Amino acid sequence: MAYAGRLAIIAGGLGGLGSATGKRLRSQGADLVLLYAPFEASRKDTVLESTFGSSNPDGVSAVECDITSEASVAAAFETISSISKSAGAFPSICINAAGYVSVTPLADTTAEEALKNIIPNLLGPFTVSKAFYHLYTTWKDSLTGGASAPPGRIVSIASQAAHVALDGHGPYCASKAGLIGLTKCMANEWGSAGITANTVSPGVALTELGKKAWSEGPVRDKHLADIPTGRFSEPEEIAGVIELLCGDGMGNVNGADLRVDGGFTIR
């Protein structure tokens, strides 16, 4: 299998696009560490059961982590290093799938509400990706006997909101545009270390939350009418693009953003 002997770290791995990506990578042999926020602890076992068929699935570890806290991320990555050693799996993939969105007219958005979008959507991937860089390069530098490291991959989930102005989404749009800019800097500075960094910008994806938010109504109908393909994306489609960017054959795709929005942002 393509990712046997490798460990994929997924921030926001409990539910939504994070779960879909984890399921896909696991099916290709990757061991997984799913980082989940403290407030998600009560549903951890339920999500693992529904995604992987067990609350304690083989090759999958769930680690509590507040991605907005540097100390929490550092502690989580110490645990990840131990998991990697126990599993004999090289930590070579990092997926930033956690995020937050609120919808408020820009003139009515408080600074506090803006930060609820900006901190997890931008600072979170910055902190997690930096910790991953240090873990990956430490493992790479420790190799002996002519062994070579698998390629390092960082893929962060941005959004169509990074490319267009969406009503009521000012801080969210800004945070996702910032994430693309941050990822370009990662690609520039870390490419020489063997790590590529890219983003995927989905449109509406029919996760459980997506289905609830976009199930019916005039706003849904108008948005669908503005998508050339005439439909929203399935989570598995987004996960497929993320997995593509993790592949060994994508080593010269670096600093790119792949839009999976049915063409919404092309016009």
Rank of each mutant, 00 (worst) to 15 (best):
A89Q: 05
G145T: 08
I180W: 03
T21W: 08
P105G: 05
W214I: 13
A76E: 07
G16F: 03
F90Q: 04
E208W: 09
V60S: 01
D257K: 00
I118P: 11
S42Q: 14
A97G: 03
T183P: 00
H223Y: 13
D31V: 04
T137K: 12
W214N: 13
M1T: 13
D167H: 12
R26S: 12
P228M: 07
S142P: 04
G217D: 07
T183C: 00
A8N: 03
E70K: 06
L122A: 13
A131R: 00
L206D: 00
S69L: 00
G203T: 03
P105I: 06
Y136R: 10
E112T: 12
A187L: 10
L115K: 14
D31L: 04
K116A: 15
P91M: 04
G88E: 08
N96Q: 06
E70Q: 09
G263I: 02
A62E: 11
V63H: 12
G191Y: 10
G15E: 12
F232A: 08
L25P: 01
H134Y: 14
P91N: 01
A11F: 06
E49A: 15
C65W: 11
S61R: 14
L122P: 11
R43A: 08
K23V: 11
P218Q: 15
V33M: 07
G203C: 04
P228E: 03
S192V: 11
G22F: 11
P202R: 01
T199H: 12
V219Y: 06
C94K: 05
K23I: 01
I266K: 11
F132K: 05
Y100F: 15
T138Y: 01
L123Q: 14
A174F: 10
P171A: 15
A213F: 11
I118T: 12
E216K: 15
V253P: 08
M186S: 07
P38C: 13
V164K: 15
S201M: 05
A107Y: 05
F90I: 10
L35S: 10
T46K: 15
G247N: 09
T144D: 13
